[in-house]
Structure formats: C-alpha cells, structure tokens
C-alpha cells in the first residue's frame, strides 16, 4: 500500500510538471509581448497611418480593417450559422440530408485556413467579381467561422429544456413560433458566446485573407465594401517577414494590439456567458 502511495505521489508530480511545462510558456509568451510591445504603443501608433515604408507612424488602417472584417464576417456567418443550427436541432429528421449537414460541419471545421483562402479567391474574388475586397474577405472568413458558430448554437439550442417546446406546442403554437418564442430566447447567450469566440479567431486569421482582402501597404481607410484593407495579422506578417529593418518594437506593438483585440473579444464572450448564467431562470 505504501509503495502504491509513493508511486501515486511520483505520477501526480510528473503530471503537475507537465502541466507547468505548458502553462509557464503561455504566461511567458504573453508577458514577452506585453513587455516588449507596450513601450511603442502611443496614441499616435493607434490612430495614425503607417509612414516611411511602415518604419514609422501607426497601424490605424490595419485596426480599422480588422474590425471591419470582423463585423462583415459576423453579418454573414451569424444568421447562416444560427439558422443551420436551428435546422439541425429543431427541424431535421434522421435522414441522409441531416447526416450530410453534420458531416459537412465536421469537415468544414477541419479544412485548413489556407484552403479557405484559395476557395474565397476563386469564388468571391474571381468568379463573383468582388475583387480583392472587404466583401470577399468577410465572406471567406464567414464560411470558415460557420462550423464553430453552428456547433455552439447547436449546443445552446439543445440545452433548452424540451418541456418548453412541449408547453408551447401543447398551447397550439406552430413550430416556428415555438422556436422563436420558447427556444431561441434561451439559447441566445450560448449562441453569442460561441459567435464572439469564433469571431475572435477570425480576427487573428491570416491565411484566408492573404489573397482575398489584405493590402500590403494601404495607408488610408476604405471607402466601400469593395475596397482592399490592411488587417492586423497580415500587417504583422508583412513587417515581420517581408520588409527588412522594421524597428522590432513596432512589430511587438502590432502583435500586442492584435492579441489585445482578440483577448478583448474573448473577455466579452466570457462576460456575456457569466451575465446570462446569473440571469437564467431554469
């Protein structure tokens, strides 16, 4: 018995060490970026366009570009994702079509982001003549975000007690009324949480926007959805690999702004979740 105890102590110690080996680098990575980047973050950096071959000035167009892309992505992916999830949870029968949708969701989630980039380029940029534009980029990112939104929405809808549907139907409500009034309102927190989370991923993605929207250097704001924009992740890629002699602090500061934006969105999703969990009555 004593031997078993000791073995347990050793094993748990090893597992703890492994966990530390993972957790410490995470903290270090964040600290490293914050420490090196914070110094270069000034009001000018956040609100000015880049100057002097990106060696000076700020990253304002890239920030705006990323925000526009996120909003555009949400406009397309949220309705499509939620409706698909409603179909799967509330309407779908156990038939071939349903199985195909489920399989498609699984496979969409596994398709590499660069393949989305290729697809968006051929369909939106070339075939539909959107050009390299916010529209093409948003649509590409939207399709990429779909599986996460669908999965989150599906879970949220499934977690609404079945009895609500039964009550509503037993009172003579139609299927859609039931979904609209007795299911969807209670699933919205979960849906929003998942959506914000998937949008935060979209905000940090580079590969899908490489050929669909991102501008290498475009120090002005877009005029319409058919304009190119700079985007934070692509900008970081550009200044880290494509342009020589960029002051390292600018790269760090760009990285810091990018992760700050992504974390901010995650924070919003966490707050949403906590807020609704407190308010929920079932």
């Amino acid at each position: 018995m004593n031997g078993a105890r000791i073995r347990q102590q050793i094993a748990f110690g090893v597992l703890g060490a492994i966990t530390l080996l993972i957790v410490v680098p995470i903290i270090l990575v964040i600290l490293y970026i914050v420490i090196n980047g914070a110094g270069a973050i000034t009001w000018e950096f956040l609100t000015q366009a880049p100057r002097g071959g990106m060696k000076a000035g700020g990253i304002f167009p890239a920030i705006v570009g990323t925000i526009l892309l996120v909003v555009g992505t949400m406009l397309f992916s949220l309705p499509l994702g939620v409706l698909s999830a409603i179909y799967l949870v509330e309407y779908a029968r156990d038939d071939l079509f349903t199985r195909m949708i489920k399989l498609s969701v699984v496979n969409l989630s596994g398709i590499p982001s660069i393949v989305y980039g290729l697809f968006g380029f051929t369909l939106f940029v070339l075939l539909l003549h959107f050009g390299t534009s916010i529209l093409a980029g948003s649509l590409t990112l939207a399709i990429m975000s779909l599986p996460v939104i669908i999965t989150a929405s599906k879970e949220a809808l499934e977690s609404v007690p079945f009895t609500y549907r039964e009550i509503s139907l037993s009172l003579g409500a139609t299927k859609w009324q039931t979904v609209r009034y007795c299911v969807l309102p209670y699933a919205i927190p979960g849906i929003l949480t998942g959506t914000v989370l998937s949008l935060s991923r979209a905000a940090g993605e580079t590969a899908p926007i490489l050929f669909t929207v991102a501008a290498f250097y475009l120090p002005r704001l877009p005029h319409s959805a058919f304009d190119q924009v700079m985007a934070l992740p692509y900008h970081l890629y550009v200044i880290a690999t494509q342009v020589p002699n960029i002051p390292i602090s600018i790269s760090f500061a760009t990285a810091l702004v990018l992760i700050a934006l992504v974390f901010l969105m995650n924070l919003v999703s966490i707050i949403l979740r906590a807020h609704y969990r407190k308010k929920r009555l079932w």
Partner: peptide, 16 residues
C-alpha cells in the same frame, strides 16, 4: 490559461 493559448493568433506565434 489554455483558452488564452487557443486564442493567440498563429501569426503572433510565428513572429515569436
């Protein structure tokens, strides 16, 4: 912390 790691954009890790 694991969730934080999941949300770090890959381009940032590439840069590091």
């Amino acid at each position: 912390l694991i969730e934080i790691l999941a949300s770090i954009p890959s381009v940032v890790l590439g840069f590091l």
